[in-house]
Design a protein around this nucleic acid. Structure first.
Lengths: 176, 176
DNA sequence: TGATTCAGCACCAATCCGATACTAATATTC
DNA sequence: GAATATTAGTATCGGATTGGTGCTGAATCA
């Protein structure tokens, strides 16, 4: 569907928040706090953070006052790394990232009528994601992008963040 | 997963083939012939072609010697239209195409830490897809793109096209 | 009339995603 | 050392989406 999963959504939100907190010398940050701040489901968020630790994007500390902290400089961590860690390598189409070797999975190979285009699109998206760092993500938050939205087509689904930002430790999930 | 569906894959292959056949004055082309040429599952392909007709991207003629033909100039048909027709509007993330109106689905709205970045990425992809036309897709086939593949990460799945291109009307699907 | 081809449904199986639960391990605090 | 806070690991589950099939009807041509 050409869409990121909600896992990636949550991860980017959490990472952006970690940059902020870390900038303020607040370190590490527990999963619980992140979940409460943005109204994310805690168990799911924990799964995601675990994966980010395994990918060495985050470092974790156990025990009271433990939590997660960034394992990399925000300016060194690309969105591509985050997405790849959570969703696996991007492949627009099944053969997007194949080398054009005959017999290697795609028998059409060089004759495939859409190979070039798909590969081109694939590379552009990859490039953009590789260039965009967590630092950019954080700064983007600081100065919200202008509304260039030519969005006449709107898909109706909720946003990833379900809560208002006020202060941490406010009650999430009101009486459903 | 940031991937196109196989439906779109098949559609692009079929459309590209239609341009080719139409260029050679061969018109219309039956679903059966397309399916056999590329080894695609006929019933599925027919579903896809039906959807493209409903989206007014293709025109259909019934009866013997009937089939599908392009309803638009290849240079006027963008990939975005094709993808949108088959998969619905692209939304990288749930709030990607929302206008930043408070209370409208996402309560974080202007405070959402990743809104700007996601929106930016979303627009770039949209723009690329809107600029790329079926004509480009077809020409791309003519001069296969060079291997710029920095693909150290390869996802192992089959290619959309399961058959060799030789001539139409060769037997598809050998003894499985 | 009969063959060919598309149209419109309805359906099914497999996969993936979002989400939860439970137990174990580790660190801090007292 | 006991209690507590927090992450690690793993297993599971329901539901949506995707890939794919089947059946019936309608149009067109010979």
């Amino acid at each position: 569907m050409l869409a990121l999963t909600r896992k990636t959504d949550y991860a980017l939100i959490a990472l952006s928040y970690l940059v902020e907190q870390q900038t303020q010398g607040d370190n590490p940050v527990s999963a619980k706090r992140i979940a409460e701040t943005f109204g994310l489901p805690l168990p799911l968020l924990m799964n995601i953070l675990k994966e980010l630790v395994q990918a060495k994007i985050l470092a974790s500390t156990r025990g009271p006052r433990g939590g997660y902290s960034l394992a990399t400089e925000p300016a060194q961590l690309s969105l591509l790394e985050v997405i790849t860690a959570l969703e696996g390598p991007i492949r627009l189409t099944q053969c997007a990232d194949r080398l054009p070797v005959l017999g290697q999975g795609c028998e059409l190979s060089a004759n495939c009528p859409i190979r070039g285009t798909v590969r081109s699109l694939h590379q552009r998206i990859n490039q953009f994601l590789a260039d965009m760092t967590l630092q950019d993500l954080y700064e983007d938050k600081m100065e919200p992008a202008g509304v260039t939205g030519s969005s006449d087509k709107v898909a109706g689904r909720g946003c990833a963040c379900r809560n208002k930002i006020e202060s941490p430790y406010t009650e999430p999930r009101q009486t459903a």
